[in-house]
Design a protein around this nucleic acid. Structure first.
Lengths: 218, 218
DNA sequence: GTCTATATTTCGATAGAC
DNA sequence: GTCTATCGAAATATAGAC
C-alpha cells in the first residue's frame, strides 16, 4: 500500500515479553460486575461509587459482591488489567507480523482504536484511576503500558530506517501518537462513527505526526 | 516565518467570550493551600487525600482550612478553574493578535505547553478529577474547555483557508492536537527540557497533525 | 485565624444464617 | 452464593474557646 521495503524480522528486540499472568475477568457474574462498576467509575469516579451501588446494578446486595471480588480495588484492578492485557496479547502480535513498519503500525492502531471504542468506559477508568490501585497492581499495569509503548516506539524507529516515517525522536513521536489516540476515550460518544474515526486517526498519526519533519521550518 | 497571507481579523466569531467571574486563588494562604493540595491530589487522587493531610503540609490543622475554603471541593474547583481561566484569558488573545493562522496557533501552543509545564500537577488534577466537582462547578470548567477548543478549531480552519494547513476536519484535528499536548501532563518530569519539548510539539502539531493530508494514501 | 474536640455520615468489609 | 445485620474506621465539616 505504501510501497516501501519491509524488514522480515521484528523491529522490537522482544526483551521481556510481559509475563501474562492471571486471567482477567473470568466468570459470567464477574464480568457483569466489572462492567457495571466500570460504567459507574467512569461517570462518577472510583471513590464516589459504593459497593452497594454496584451491587444494585447487577441485582444483588453489597455483601454478595465479595463472593466474586475480594475487595473494591480488585474490581478496579480487573478493569484496568483487561485494558492493558488485551492490547499486549492481541495487538502487539500485529507488530510481529509480515509487512512494512507503516502497515504493521496501522494494523496495531486500528485494533487499538477499535478496542478503545468497544470498551470506552473501561479504557477511561484504566487511564484515570491508576492512583486508586495498590502499588503492586499499579506496577503491573504500568509495566504493560511501558512495554506497549516501547514496542510502538520500536516500530516507529523501524519505519524511520525504512524511510516510511520522518521524525526526530521515535520515542517522543510514539508517546504523542498514543496520547492522541488515548485521548479519544475522554470524548467519544456512543453515536460516533467508529469506522470513520479509525481512518481519520490513522491519517493523523501515520501521515501527520509521523511525517512531521519539514525542511521549511526552523 | 512560514510566509503566507494573513487575515487581519480574528477567525473566531467571538461569540460568548466566556464570562470570567470569580478570582481564582487570591490570598497568599489560599494559594499555598491550593498548591499543596494539587500536589497531593495529583499523586494520590482527590478522594484519598484528607483535609488533615493538606493542612499539615501548610502547617496548620484540618479545621483551619475552612477559614480559607468552604469545602474540600472548593479547593479542587480553585485548582481546576485556574487551569482553564488562565488559558482562556491569556492564551486566547494570542489568537486575536496579528499574524498568520499558523503563527498565531504556534504562539498559543507555545504558551499552552509552557503553562502546562509550569503547573504540571494542577493541570493533571484539572484534567483527571472533573468527576469530583459539583455539577455546577464542572459545567463552568467544561464551558471554558469547550470555548478554548472551539477557538483552536477556528484558527485551524482559518489556516486551511489560508493554505497553511491541510486537514479534512478542523474540529477533529483541533481535538487531536489538544489531546496530544495535554497528554504531556501525564508523563512530564521535572528534569524535562521544556524549551526542547515545546519546539518538538510545535513541529508535531503544525507540521505533523495539521499537515496530514497526503495524496498517496487511501 | 487557629486551635481542640466532636458531631455525623458514609463506606468497605465481615459474621453467620439459609 | 445470596441474604440480613453490623462492625469499625475514616473522613468532612462544625462548635466554640482563645
Amino acid at each position: 500500500m505504501t510501497g516501501v521495503p519491509e524488514p522480515a524480522v521484528p523491529d522490537g528486540d522482544g526483551r521481556r515479553p510481559p509475563s501474562v499472568r492471571p486471567r482477567t475477568v473470568p466468570g459470567r457474574r464477574r464480568a457483569e460486575i466489572a462492567e457495571a462498576a466500570a460504567r459507574f467509575f467512569a461517570e462518577h469516579g472510583y471513590h464516589t461509587v459504593g459497593m452497594r451501588e454496584i451491587a444494585e446494578a447487577v441485582g444483588m446486595r453489597g455483601a454478595s459482591l465479595y463472593n466474586h471480588f475480594s475487595s473494591k480495588e480488585e474490581i478496579l484492578y480487573a478493569i484496568a488489567l483487561a485494558m492493558t492485557e488485551v492490547p499486549v496479547e492481541q495487538h502487539i502480535p500485529l507488530l510481529d507480523a509480515e509487512g512494512s513498519p507503516a502497515d504493521r503500525l496501522a494494523a496495531l492502531l486500528r485494533a487499538h482504536i477499535r478496542h478503545l471504542a468497544d470498551h470506552r468506559v473501561e479504557h477511561l477508568v484504566g487511564l484515570r484511576e491508576l492512583a486508586a490501585l495498590t502499588p503492586e497492581h499499579r506496577a503491573v499495569i504500568t509495566d504493560h503500558r511501558r512495554y506497549y509503548q516501547r514496542r510502538v516506539r520500536d516500530v516507529v524507529a523501524a519505519g524511520v530506517r525504512a524511510g516510511q516515517f520522518a521524525v526526530d525522536s521515535p520515542g517522543r513521536a510514539a508517546v504523542a501518537v498514543l496520547d492522541m489516540v488515548n485521548g479519544i476515550s475522554w470524548w467519544l460518544r456512543p453515536d460516533t462513527d467508529v469506522d470513520e474515526l479509525v481512518e481519520t486517526y490513522l491519517g493523523l498519526a501515520l501521515d501527520g505526526v509521523l511525517q512531521h519533519a519539514r525542511e521549511d521550518r526552523a
